[in-house]
Write a protein that binds this DNA or RNA. Structure first.
Lengths: 139, 139
DNA sequence: GTTTCATGTAACTTATAATGTTACATGATC
DNA sequence: GATCATGTAACATTATAAGTTACATGAAAC
């Protein structure tokens, strides 16, 4: 979203500063997005990161998938294939519950396009400027 | 569930052995269950842990709540109250999605009583014994 | 009543994963 | 060819959960 708001490609350094992290961490994360075709990267002068397709055609789910679709849950099985019959029964029941919740979560993420978030962002920016006076938001 | 299957209170040491962990870790975890009134503990000879109420009246949610209701999600906001307007908008959208998923997950956990799991466990135990010949399952 | 057994808990160590950092290779633009 | 930017390996730091040691407290057995 920062990229789409900018008029030129943004460097990893600029992005890192905006989100209080490190250029290499940015590259690592963005690499997933690049491989998924969500963003582009260019080397050399005037290079950096830019969006590769319409924000309308990107959802939060696409971003999630692009970064590797890590398990969204902090709770999990202590053992994957336990010999303990109690543990088996509990694991299966929890797995069912998590699966249901995950399905719903993913469906929800698919409904949120980055374009929709960009609209909300613009509203927020307007309100912010009215309250505090003009403020350049280039990054 | 191990406790309800046993005919006497089980010590932290016995439980630790059954779940391949450490007696102190067992005590730490069980302390939450005790404070929530799900289990009892007794010191001294013949002491140990036992269930404090009918398995019918305990659900997976009760257990989850008893151990402190930690956030079930591995994904979260990078910053709780970010100044960045993009981050604000994304956080709120994700928070909404997580909240919905969490509500559904908790509702689901409330439908699973430990008694229901105990029934499944007994079935599994029967099948296990038919397949392998009698096997004492006291812990 | 004292010995034994069990929990309760503080303090510390270890394991693991995410994040941050340094260093340098590769490629594009000026 | 000098400069700028990504790509990536290797390493360091940090945070958190799990495991461990040590010892105090209380209950039962003898």
């Amino acid at each position: 979203m920062h990229l789409s708001a900018a008029s030129k490609p943004l460097t990893s350094e600029e992005l890192a500063k905006a989100m209080h992290t490190n250029p290499v961490v940015v590259r690592r994360t963005m690499a997933g997005l690049r491989e998924a075709g969500l963003v582009r990267s260019e080397k050399g002068h005037g290079g950096g990161w830019s969006v590769a397709r319409d924000l309308e055609a990107m959802t939060l789910y696409d971003v999630y998938a692009a970064i590797g679709a890590p398990t969204p849950f902090a709770l999990g099985n202590r053992t994957e294939s336990p010999g303990c019959l109690v543990e088996q029964v509990v694991n299966e029941s929890l797995d069912d519950a998590f699966k249901e919740a995950e399905t719903i979560l993913m469906a929800r993420l698919r409904t949120v396009s980055l374009a929709a978030l960009a609209v909300q962002f613009k509203h927020r920016l307007t309100a912010h400027n009215e309250h505090q006076g003009e403020c350049v938001y280039d990054v």
